[in-house]
Amino acid sequence: MKKKVLITLLLCIPFISIILVIMFRLTVVPTNEEVISQLKEITCYKTNVEYITNNSRGEEKEETTQYYSEDKGARIDFGIDRIKFYKDGNIRVEDNISNKEYNVEADLDKLHSLAFMKNLLSYPIEEGSIKEGQEEWGEKKYIELTLELFLENDHLDKAKVFIDKKEKTPIGAIIYDKEGNDRLRIIYKNFEKLKEIDNDLL
């Protein structure tokens, strides 16, 4: 009897081990799709964002700081020169150079607001485009995916997004035009998830 119980236990050990490995993987190592979903669901963060635009005038760079709160709205600081506030579908601009304040239509601000995680990851993922790599961003192992942008703008047709697989934070995005040319690069630095953002900032 004891021998049968012992044999049964020995036979069960491999199956129990396999189940434990699967459970451990699901809880500790999320799938690429889960990482993308978690990033999309972040409700509050701060990050530096660099925009690199390629056009007929050559390459232009903008260094910004982005604040995002799902409840309170969002803000982009363009150094000390200009601040854009995004709330309830409205965009308010504080121009510190001309010392003026004015509103901008949302349709005229597709480029900068595209960098908000909630906006960027709201577009459909191209089938079969989710993969892993390590060539584009130095030694960082990343998740790569391609998004179909529906912005009615020939210069903003598709986006290739890169996510740090280990840190589960955005690295950057490359935006292509209808011809497949690299038109815009969005680079995230010092991405920080927050519990909340000070009301005075938004």
Score class of each variant (00 low, 15 high):
1 M>Y: 07
5 V>P: 00
7 I>N: 09
12 C>I: 13
21 V>W: 15
24 F>M: 14
24 F>P: 06
24 F>S: 14
25 R>Y: 14
27 T>C: 11
28 V>C: 10
30 P>N: 01
31 T>I: 00
35 V>I: 14
38 Q>D: 14
39 L>R: 01
40 K>F: 10
40 K>P: 00
42 I>S: 05
42 I>M: 10
43 T>F: 07
43 T>Q: 15
45 Y>V: 07
45 Y>D: 03
52 I>C: 11
52 I>R: 12
53 T>M: 14
54 N>Q: 05
55 N>K: 05
56 S>F: 13
57 R>V: 12
60 E>R: 13
60 E>Q: 15
65 T>C: 13
65 T>W: 07
66 Q>L: 15
72 K>A: 13
77 D>P: 08
78 F>D: 04
78 F>R: 06
82 R>G: 00
84 K>V: 05
87 K>I: 02
90 N>M: 10
92 R>F: 05
97 I>V: 15
103 N>F: 08
103 N>A: 03
105 E>F: 10
110 K>E: 05
113 S>C: 08
114 L>W: 05
119 N>V: 09
124 P>S: 09
127 E>H: 10
130 I>A: 01
134 Q>M: 09
138 G>A: 08
139 E>W: 08
140 K>R: 11
140 K>A: 12
147 L>H: 06
147 L>T: 07
148 E>P: 02
149 L>Q: 03
149 L>C: 00
150 F>I: 10
151 L>D: 04
152 E>A: 09
153 N>R: 04
160 K>Y: 01
161 V>I: 08
164 D>N: 12
166 K>N: 15
168 K>P: 02
170 P>S: 08
170 P>R: 05
174 I>H: 11
176 Y>K: 09
181 N>A: 13
182 D>K: 15
183 R>G: 06
185 R>G: 13
187 I>Y: 11
198 D>V: 00
199 N>F: 03
